[in-house]
Write a protein that binds this DNA or RNA. Structure first.
Length: 745
DNA sequence: TTGAGGCTTTCAACA
DNA sequence: AAAGCCTCAA
């Protein structure tokens, strides 16, 4: 097979240009992955480069996996030996082997956002700062933001970088955070990259070894690299200079994660001999789809002008549907789907529903389930985020790394074994006083006074597990070890004790988790516990492994972010409303808005045959009921390109009124949010089942056992979820009706 | 001092 | 919808 056959001239040039720096500007749907995989195959087959000398990184595990499959398809089993990973897993690979040279122990734990927040919470407590006023999550992202810029590794002065608007010493917190991570032998996601850069900079032998091992570099999604990743790529490739980066500035959607668009815009400055090749023939989308996308993205000022050509030719126009409310929107999607299936032979698997935020998936799930349409949700509540899985993982992390006090805190009383806050506090104090780890205190009986029975029990469980783990692999299989731990920890028993549906599914989930351990050990017979942990701690965005069959013929739902790099015959881009998409937190700055627009561009360009844009005029969110103004992105598409539909009649009177009042297409300054404590006659009814489920009416007098007499001033929600706001003499309170012991007075 | 259950609050995108 | 905080009973 000729590798260059079936490539257009520019794609071919990109594949053939193997030596020296190369920038590939690859528009949406221009065959980017095809070029990368063919280029790797070409290096091996035509240039006789050993697969061990090729280094390729992408952003997601999914993309890396896809690339690996396609390379193997082109080269045969040899392709397996290409180093193909995400930036993070590449860093872990390097740090595991050489990290000790800069003082990182081999068995380090990787802390995700949740773990980070636990650490921060502990520090806030120690600094006597109210965690209600200073949210650990916002501190975590602040720390992450600082580290993403990685000016640190450039030796900038820390005290100049840290924000001074906090009412406390941020610098102290920042240092304490890192000190605790060091004590716990843990790295956060940012550290993985930063420490790798530090290692490459400060340890010449490591750099030399890696530079001579890898001779050809390929970086996918280069527009989304941050400064530290940029440095990492630069250092590794600086000797061979065979670096090929691929990206599209119009698809840069991760600036909030530190992505620095300058990396791609300045590539030609970094390498004055860089060759630039542009791929501008789109093989994915029909003309009207691409035209719509272009009309949206051209409103961005900060971009390289480009001209994508659709090779697939004309097609159906893009449809824009205005629905009455979020249920109408979902029903429109379902009915359109059914029509396309019966009249045009599409299958469930051909459809994708995109939304801006995960919370929007719920309504679609409702409606799809009611219509018996199989679906899968990518992202969202992830398998590894479930409580029972996190608990089991914490056990494993702690056994692998007994310095990991965050994991310890999670499992010491899970399941309940009589070790409460007071006891944990004592252990912590003793550890600090003696200058040892908390596990030392527990395992060596260093606790003064009488230690609760639970401590003994816990020590036994961990001691037993550590002993077993030492026989993995070899005397014991990793999966058997985890199975044993599930029993021996008492976790299984505690789930079985309460015979609920919820617990039954938790047990199933743990079993599925153990199954994934089994899969791991089949692929890696010599794999250790630590290796397993490293693998899955970077594998958080993987779809739910519980329903592998579901994907056979299911509709796919995901956030627009998750959709990057994918394509579907029919795409519904939903929630096209101001403050939803573009998101309300991005709407006020030009940079924010441009990134939202790129995100919209990414969404539209995923569609191959049909594209549907939908919005709801009224949307119920946890804030209340909002009147939504149509997204400016829809207004940016010329009328002639859109086929307009409406869906859902009951509330359309309300809708029209609203429109007339606000004026469509004008520059609207009026807020589009209306709280639903307005009289309900003027507010159009949302879905019918939303109503009439409260035993109370507005202005009813009620009696609360604790707060006394009050008046109902607001009713919202439906079914078991009715929330009542009641005005007492002491002020207003909101309750879930279901849970509140109220009496009519 | 612990554990359970009731009440309250929270909600952007991700490796 | 779910997790975290708070209160109260044991």
């Amino acid at each position: 097979m000729d590798l260059l056959e079936n490539l257009n001239p520019n794609q071919r040039k990109a594949v053939e240009h193997t030596e020296g720096p190369l920038l590939i500007l690859a528009g949406a749907g221009s065959g980017k992955t095809r070029v990368i995989t063919h280029r790797i195959a070409y290096l091996m087959r035509e240039k006789h480069v050993s697969p061990y000398r090729i280094f390729a990184v992408t952003f997601t595990n999914k993309a890396a996996e896809e690339m690996r499959k396609r390379v193997i398809g082109l080269t045969g089993p040899e392709g397996t030996s290409v180093f193909m990973k995400t930036f993070h897993s590449a860093s872990v690979y390097i740090l595991r082997r050489f990290g000790e040279r800069i003082g990182i122990e081999k068995n380090f734990s990787i802390y995700d956002q949740g773990d980070q927040e636990q650490v921060i919470k502990g520090i806030l407590e120690k600094m006597r700062i109210d965690p209600k006023k200073v949210k650990p999550s916002s501190i975590a992202s602040k720390i992450s933001e600082i580290k993403d810029k990685a000016d640190l590794v450039d030796g900038a002065r820390l005290d100049l970088l840290l924000p001074d608007y906090y009412a406390f010493d941020f610098q102290e917190l920042y240092r304490e955070y890192h000190q605790r991570l060091r004590q716990n032998n843990a790295l956060d996601f940012n550290d993985l990259i930063i420490k790798t850069v530090e290692l490459l900079r400060n340890d010449a032998p490591t750099l030399g070894e890696l530079q001579s091992r890898w001779q050809y570099f390929m970086i996918d999604e280069y527009q989304d690299t941050n400064h530290a990743q940029y440095l990492m790529a630069l250092l590794l490739s600086s000797q061979s200079r065979n670096i090929c980066v691929v990206g599209d500035d119009d698809q840069s959607i991760y600036s909030w994660r530190g992505a620095d668009i300058r990396n791609i815009l300045d590539f030609e400055k970094d390498y004055d001999d860089a060759r630039v090749i542009t791929l501008d023939e789109n093989y994915r989308s029909r003309q009207p789809i691409l035209d719509s996308a272009s009309h949206v993205i051209r409103n961005n000022v900060h971009r390289k002008e480009k001209n994508l050509k659709a090779c697939k030719g004309e097609g159906e126009p893009v449809v824009w549907c205005r629905a009455n409310n979020e249920y109408g929107e979902a029903e429109y999607v379902v009915s359109t789907m059914q029509t396309l299936k019966s009249r045009e032979g599409f299958h469930n698997r051909d459809f994708a529903v995109f939304y801006r935020t995960n919370a929007q998936s719920r309504v679609f799930e409702d409606v799809l389930r009611r219509n018996n349409i199989p679906y899968r949700v990518v992202g969202g509540l992830k398998f590894y985020d479930r409580r029972e899985i996190k608990d089991m993982l914490a056990y494993l992390k702690f056994i692998a790394n007994p310095h990991d006090s965050v994991s310890l805190a999670r499992i010491i009383n899970t399941p309940a074994r009589g070790i409460g806050d007071a006891t944990v506090g004592k252990i912590r104090d003793a550890a600090v006083k003696e200058g040892v780890s908390e596990w030392d205190v527990i395992s060596q009986g260093m606790l003064s006074g009488r230690a609760p029975k639970g401590i003994e029990e816990f020590r036994g469980i961990i001691g037993h597990a550590q002993m077993m783990a030492s026989g993995v692999p070899g005397a014991m299989k990793l999966s058997d070890f985890v199975l044993d731990l599930f029993q021996a920890s008492g976790y299984r028993k505690s789930l079985e004790e309460e015979n609920s549906i919820e617990n039954a599914s938790r047990i199933e989930n743990v079993e599925e988790f153990i199954n994934s351990v089994y899969n791991f050990e089949t692929v890696n017979p010599q794999g250790t516990l630590a290796e397993f942990l490293q693998e899955i701690s970077l594998f958080t965005s993987e779809e739910d492994p519980l329903d592998p069959e579901a994907r056979d013929n299911s509709l796919t739902m995901m956030t627009v972010h998750n959709a990057k790099g994918l394509e579907f015959p029919v795409v519904f881009l939903t929630g096209m409303e101001e403050n939803t998409f573009p998101h309300r937190l991005s709407i006020d700055t030009e940079e924010g808005l441009e990134e939202e627009r790129r995100l919209c561009y990414v969404g539209i360009t995923r569609a191959m045959e049909r594209m549907y844009l939908t919005n709801a005029d009224i949307r119920r969110t946890y804030y209340g009921v909002d009147y939504k103004e149509t997204s400016r992105f829809i207004r940016e598409i010329p009328d002639g390109l859109l086929e307009k539909r409406t869906y859902g009649n009951d509330s359309f009177n309300g809708y029209r009124q609203e429109r007339r009042q606000f004026g469509f297409g004008a520059d609207l300054k009026k807020p589009d949010r209306v709280r639903d404590d307005a009289p309900s006659e003027s507010a159009p009814a949302p879905a019918p089942e939303e109503h009439g489920s409260s035993a109370y009416r507005k202005l009813d007098r009620v009696m609360h056992p604790k707060y006394g007499a009050g008046t109902v001033i607001k009713i919202e929600g439906a079914g078991d979820n009715v929330k009542l706001t009641i005005l007492f003499t002491t002020g207003a309170k909101t309750f879930l009706e279901k849970y509140t012991p109220l009496e009519k007075a």
